[in-house]
Simulated assay, not measured.
Amino acid sequence: MTGTSAEKGTISVRLVNEALLELRQQGLDDVPLLERAGIAPALLQRPYARVSAQAYGRLWRAIAAASDDEFFGMNPRRMKSGSFAFMAHAALREPDIGAALQSMLRFAGLVFDGLQPRLERQGSLAHIVLDEEGAPPSRAFAYFTLWMMLHGLVCWLAGRRIPILGVELRCAAPDYLADYRVMFSDNLRFARPQSRLLFNADCLALPVRRSEPELKRFLAGAPGNILVRYRDPRSLGARIKVYLRNLKPERWPDFENLSGHFYMAPSTLRRKLALEGQSYQGLKDQVRRDQAIARLDSGEGNFSELAFELGFADSSAFYKAFKKWTGTTPGQYRALMHPEQPDSGCPNRSGR
């Protein structure tokens, strides 16, 4: 969950409606809460409208104050006001991100009924798993709200973005996914046996870089200062990634031709990407990474063919790039995602 001050952090009104769903089902009037947040109620009838991240953060605070629940009423046990701050204070005392995350997950397990999050590590990959004790799946918004709190706090503690490699949820895919893809990962999978969030295990060794004075300022701006780490789906970097996804890698343009496609001089495009903390090479790497992970998640086993389709000179170059992106090999990643499928013995499944 990352961004820069140059990005316009906005959130779909569909997520505003998701945040208000439980209150509405209880028959409570949401208009005063919307007005307190500075969101026009009529805006919620326009499915493509967006609100500022700051307004969404104010709404979150207003709902928490009205219901004494920082989790929008989505769990039988309320996440009482002040819970997030308590969790942050406890995590801040830990020496590194792994210990901080363990502290956060223990706290979440105490707060929520029927939801026991735990941290697992398998080789170079780590994942937060949600044990739901046989309960029916929650709606996607509940899972993503929990991920946002945990991941947002961890990134702030580390002082850097911790890339998410993939998200798996027990529930069916919701009608709206665009903001979730921007915030977390393009690699979202639904109707899975367990809900989990995957990332590079090397991140667990990062030191906690924040202080008590910084925490006070962070909490004073929460949750808005987590929400602004959304990247606007209409940002230049996001538009370039959409453009690249619609082309085969061998047809990706050079920087000058890309500039022409977006009606800019190369220097202007480079400057605007820099303001978003992006580069053309970085965007190409992100698209290749997401496509590689999606193919491996779907069961792809021919890594030489996949390397060719992604535009790599050979499978060795793909292997090195994937290891850099995820901290693990394509074969190890595929084995983690599909433990039920035995290795066929094919040379392309030998760890590459």
Rank of each mutant, 00 (worst) to 15 (best):
P347C: 01
L188H: 04
S138A: 15
K323I: 03
P163R: 11
Y176I: 00
P347D: 06
W252V: 06
K241C: 15
I162G: 05
S67M: 13
E250N: 13
L119D: 06
K216F: 00
R288S: 11
S298N: 13
A55I: 04
G38N: 14
Y180F: 09
F107T: 11
E340D: 13
R229S: 03
K248V: 06
F184A: 10
G123A: 04
M104E: 09
A65G: 10
W325V: 05
D113Y: 15
G27W: 02
G224W: 03
A238V: 07
L244Y: 12
L20Y: 12
T328F: 02
P41R: 01
V154I: 07
L206I: 08
G98H: 07
L43G: 01
E120W: 01
E22R: 13
Q332F: 09
S344T: 10
Q332S: 09
G27I: 02
R189M: 09
Y243V: 02
L59N: 09
E340Q: 14
G345N: 12
T2I: 10
Y243D: 08
V287L: 10
R118N: 05
L110F: 14
S138L: 15
R161W: 14
D68L: 06
L101H: 02
I39K: 02
A135I: 04
G311Y: 07
L258F: 05
R106Y: 07
A142M: 02
N257A: 14
V111P: 07
S211W: 04
A88V: 09
G82L: 08
A321V: 01
D254I: 03
V182L: 15
R170F: 00
L146G: 12
P253F: 01
R78H: 13
F322D: 01
V182G: 14
F322G: 04
G311L: 06
T145D: 09
V228A: 06
L15R: 12
K272M: 12
L258N: 02
G311I: 08
S83L: 04
P347S: 05
R189S: 08
F86T: 11
D314A: 12
V287C: 08
L125G: 00
R78T: 12
V228R: 06
V182M: 15
Q278V: 01
K248E: 11
Q341F: 07
E309I: 00
M148N: 11
I293G: 00
P163V: 05
E132N: 15
I11D: 04
P249K: 06
M149C: 04
A238H: 04
V228C: 10
V111H: 06
D297V: 01
R295S: 14
D68Q: 10
L130N: 05
F255Y: 11
I293W: 00
